[in-house]
Design a protein around this nucleic acid. Structure first.
Lengths: 333, 333
DNA sequence: TTGTACGCGTTATCAC
DNA sequence: GTGATAACGCGTACAA
């Protein structure tokens, strides 16, 4: 059914080699011949088979992207930025969601290698897998948002400590002393680094660190809800909470909404990542905003550069989050 | 660098055919031989090249998905459901965002054909393109959420009229008579059908249709903001607004938030699609909820069935949205 | 149970 | 400028 390069060659009365030349715009073809070939392609509705091309050329224009959860707006935005760049360079995206499980991540990595992806953009599940090493030797990987130590590759990361530090500092400046944090697993870079930023800020300002105020969950909405409830039910509840990601913030807002606490009155809140709802509340939500699209764009650019020059020294780009102060950080003391 | 089936065969001391047999679990291989081959594969870290396989077999396990905007949580959820099914069947997803432009959509369709995708899940930009026809003849398409008339293919759609009708009816039951709608382009099925549901409900209840209360935009957040502002600034503003999608609802909430109108006091609101913030507001947001994951799952299932039996009569599944009544629909009259 | 040989659609290397 | 033709990595008759 589908026509091949040979059909085109036959109809145009030339050889497949010549057809290949015009398909790939390699020049060296008489204009008239070229026109005949283009007419034949049009008539046969010829669509080149990139799979066969890749088999022959040993190159693909495929880039694999592995993301924990495409439904999380943060990753959707990062992916979207990366996809834009990838497309501009004529590459195609192979996307998969690991759901933060190692099994799925390994499955996806394998799939992408089977498809001969030329490079991988990876926001890894929290543990390091042998597949990552196995693949790193074949094609370039660019780690996005979450670091994994001991891997030689490019990285686009966020200065999580700085973000958490700045937020905690703002709390302190607004008069808070009882500052809690809810965060994800300390084995993950975001979980650990945000906690460290929080902790070192409290230390710098001589504020005692209270274990009850440190709540560790799993970066999911329900986790934010549960940990938030726990915090609000303490005998001596915090006056401020730093939430370590967007989903946890949603869960936290949920429990606050159904509790007796009032945001901006007796409870301050700052969350990692901006949210569409941030400006729909009273008070508006103060957030630590990350350049999501830019992260994706940067990672995609680095990966594509890397594909073209594999030996160049590896780079790590660390992007800076910034506070968007909208009001929810302060309360009536 | 990367090892091939031949390398494995050589190391195991067998022929490529035998290796192929164990790769594809076709049986008929002596257990001992099989072990030798598996050892060889392990040692060489052999990864099969699915591209070469596809070239030879003329089959792929690739499914293309074209979505207007992956950053829209609705499409992210639909895609996520589809991806789950697709993966269960051993297929891989090729995802692309058209940004609702015909150019990009055509580019994506071409890319997917070049990659020999076995089927396409398509939420089309608003106009019909020649590529859709061209492709429909080669591989099955399943239209998702947005219909395009005159194409012979499977469909998974939503009963938009019903959703809009029910919402409008609820407004009326709550005492509203001045009911406005903001919606997307009437050339799109969602835009048109939701408007029709709204209109026919008003007619059924003998309520005059006021042109000023019908605001047409483009389904984006800013559109919701602008149209909402226009409505609220009318000399005789509506007491209720039906918003036709999630993004528009966000924009609408934004302008309401900054206006003198108070939700649930002098303005009622129902929006298409549930939102994470729906239960974080006062009053909570009443929405017309669509089964997003299920839509994607259903579409993926239908497409894969279709791939395996291309001649079976085409199906159209129409899913029913349902109201989640939370309070924002009524006001103090 | 295993091996040989050909074909898939394309690129790339020669020759002419 | 153009054309044969050998790869590319794999599946699959068909043969042994």
């Amino acid at each position: 059914m589908a026509s091949t390069i040979r059909d085109v060659a036959q109809l145009a009365g030339v050889s497949v080699a010549t057809v290949s030349r015009v398909i790939n715009k390699m020049g060296g073809v008489r204009p008239e011949t070229e026109r005949r070939i283009e007419d034949a392609m049009e008539e046969l509705q010829y669509i080149p088979n990139v799979l066969a091309r890749s088999v022959a050329s040993k190159k693909t224009k495929l880039i694999g992207m592995i993301v924990p959860d495409i439904e999380n707006p943060f990753f959707a935005a990062v992916y979207s930025g990366a996809d834009k760049i990838v497309r501009e360079f004529g590459y195609t995206t192979l996307l998969g969601g690991s759901n933060d499980t190692v099994d799925r991540e390994e499955g996806l990595l394998q799939t992408m290698m089977e498809h001969q992806a030329s490079g991988i953009l990876l926001t890894a599940a929290f543990s390091r897998t042998k597949w990552i090493d196995r693949i790193g030797n074949r094609v370039p990987i660019c780690l996005v948002d979450r670091d994994i130590e001991g891997i030689e590759c490019d990285r686009v990361l966020i200065d999580n400590r700085r973000g958490a530090y700045d937020a905690t500092k703002l709390f302190i400046q607004k008069g808070h002393r009882k500052i809690a944090i809810i965060t994800g697993p300390l084995e993950s870079t975001p979980g650990r680094e945000r906690f460290e930023g929080y902790k070192s800020c409290l230390e710098d300002y001589g504020i005692k660190i209270i274990p009850d105020y440190i709540q560790i969950g799993d970066f999911r909405e329900n986790s934010g809800y549960q940990l938030g409830r726990h915090l609000l039910q303490l005998n001596d509840p915090p006056t401020a909470i730093l939430s370590s990601n967007n989903l946890m913030t949603l869960g936290l807002l949920e429990i606050i909404h159904t509790s007796s606490f009032k945001l901006g009155v007796d409870l301050g809140l700052i969350g990692f990542d901006d949210l569409p709802i941030a400006t729909l509340m009273s008070p508006n939500l103060t957030v630590i905003s990350r350049p999501m699209n830019e992260m994706g764009e940067c990672a995609a650019n680095m990966l594509i550069q890397r594909i073209h020059s594999p030996t160049k020294p590896k780079q790590t780009v660390i992007m800076t989050p910034h506070l968007i102060v909208r009001g929810s950080e302060s309360i009536n003391f």
